[in-house]
Computed example of a mutant assay.
Amino acid sequence: MNRKTLFLISLLLSGCLGSFSQTPQQWRDSLAVLNKQISITPYSSDLYLRKAAVNIELQQWDYALDTYNEILKKDPTNLAALYYRAFVNGKMRRYDLSASDYEKMLTFAPTNIEARLGLAYTYIKRGKPTDALDQYGLIIEQHPDSAVAYASRACLEEEMQRYDIALYDWEKAVELQPSNNDYIYSKASLLVKMNRKKEARECLEELVRRGVATGEIHSMLMQCK
């Protein structure tokens, strides 16, 4: 999987958690407190969701999955539990189950961008790039100002060697979020593939002006000679 895809997946699947920086031991301590609260408190979906979030931080996928299952038994329309159960199933490579939860969530919240991006990702992992492109098209129709949507589609189009269309989407992503250096680097990388080295170098020189260390993009600069 290429650098750009990894970046976008990380943004989608970890950025949504909104977690605080803690050590593994601090997370385990938090989990112990939550388990104790759950044992002495009447059922609270909030407590269960917080516990499952800590399970995710500790990469305890089975425990997180069991917790989301428990929540959804009591409240089948709990959108947070549906979303994160889909996320956990994805981490466990159960992409069909992950897709099913994203689809359920979208029946209740059809314009939810995170769920639709997640569903597109499951299509990619199941070897259905055309279906993934359809999802990205829906996202862009619903959220025309989403730089992440354009960038995600650009990643897939580039992997499918649809370079002209991918370049359009990278340019849209940069237009919508001009401060994002990753998007500019990704655009430069594609321009190199297209043998448009002068334009690629201009992108890289812009990154240098922004303070990106030359060493970080040295190999790309050399390809632009």
Rank of each mutant, 00 (worst) to 15 (best):
C224G: 03
Q22H: 14
R28Y: 08
Q135D: 02
L82A: 05
L13N: 14
G18M: 08
R126W: 02
A115L: 07
W61S: 03
L106Y: 07
A115M: 11
L11E: 15
A120E: 00
K187Q: 15
Q25Y: 14
T130Y: 06
T122A: 03
M194L: 10
D131V: 01
K225R: 10
E159R: 12
D169A: 05
L11S: 15
Y68D: 04
I124C: 02
D145S: 13
A147W: 02
L204F: 02
G215E: 15
E171W: 04
Y95F: 15
Y48I: 06
N69A: 15
D62R: 12
P178F: 05
E202Q: 09
H143G: 03
C16M: 13
K73M: 14
F108S: 13
A173C: 11
E216K: 12
N2H: 13
D101N: 15
E57N: 12
L191P: 00
N35L: 10
L34I: 12
A53M: 09
E205M: 05
I124Q: 04
S146L: 06
E199L: 05
G18L: 09
A173W: 00
S19Q: 11
S21D: 13
S189Q: 10
Q25D: 15
W27V: 04
I139K: 00
G15N: 11
T41F: 07
M222E: 07
N180R: 10
A109V: 05
Y63G: 06
K91N: 10
Y185Q: 05
R3Q: 15
E70L: 14
I38S: 07
K125R: 08
L106P: 02
Q26P: 11
S189K: 07
T41A: 13
L11I: 12
N35F: 06
E141A: 13
E157S: 04
A52I: 10
G211I: 06
N35C: 15
S179G: 14
E141L: 12
Q37C: 12
R28H: 08
A173T: 05
H218W: 07
R210N: 10
L34V: 09
N195A: 10
A120V: 02
A80Q: 09
E157D: 08
Q142C: 04
A151R: 00
T107M: 10
I139E: 00
Y163P: 00
D182L: 06
I184L: 13
K74G: 12
T130P: 03
S100H: 11
G18Y: 06
E216I: 08
Q135A: 02
D66S: 12
F7P: 00
H143L: 06
S189P: 00
T214M: 10
C155M: 11
C16A: 13
R153C: 03
I113M: 13
E57L: 12
K128Y: 03
G118M: 08
M194V: 04
Y121C: 01
R209C: 06
M92P: 01
L34Q: 06
K104Y: 08
K225G: 05
N35W: 06
V54D: 01
Y95K: 05
I9N: 09
T41M: 08
L12P: 01
L106A: 05
S45K: 11
R201S: 04
N35A: 12
P110I: 07
I140L: 04
E205K: 02
Y43A: 15
K4R: 12
I113Q: 13
E70I: 09
M220F: 04
S98V: 05
I56C: 09
T214R: 15
D145Y: 10
M160Y: 08
L34S: 07
M92F: 07
E202M: 04
A213Y: 08
